[in-house]
């Protein structure tokens, strides 16, 4: 039973192929890492730019 559950939960996208890399001058970075870093920067700016709504409503 556990096996069938985990099969159902198994990886949908197979990332086990050979890695994709970006070369830019002396910079060499995997697409996966670049994606993580870009997402971090995007998340950071989203966090400080998206308005934060107080549940209690009131503006101070």
């Amino acid at each position: 039973m556990f096996a069938s559950i985990s099969l159902a939960l198994g990886a949908i996208f197979n990332l086990m192929g050979s890695g994709h890399y970006i070369h830019w001058g002396f910079v060499q970075i995997s697409v996966a890492n670049l994606l993580v870093i870009v997402l971090m920067v995007v998340t950071f700016f989203a966090a400080i730019l998206i308005p934060f709504r107080h549940k209690s409503g009131g503006k101070s």
């Binding site: 086990m16 192929g17 890695g19 060499q28 995997s30 996966a32 890492n33 993580v36 870093i37």
Partner: peptide, 25 residues
């Protein structure tokens, strides 16, 4: 071949297409 050598910024890379340890950039 897995882009893990020191001169390939390998320290932050994972095997295949997985993110590795980008915090080691």
């Amino acid at each position: 071949a897995e882009h893990l050598s020191g001169d390939q910024w390998g320290m932050m890379n994972g095997t295949a297409n997985y993110p590795g340890q980008p915090w080691l950039w």
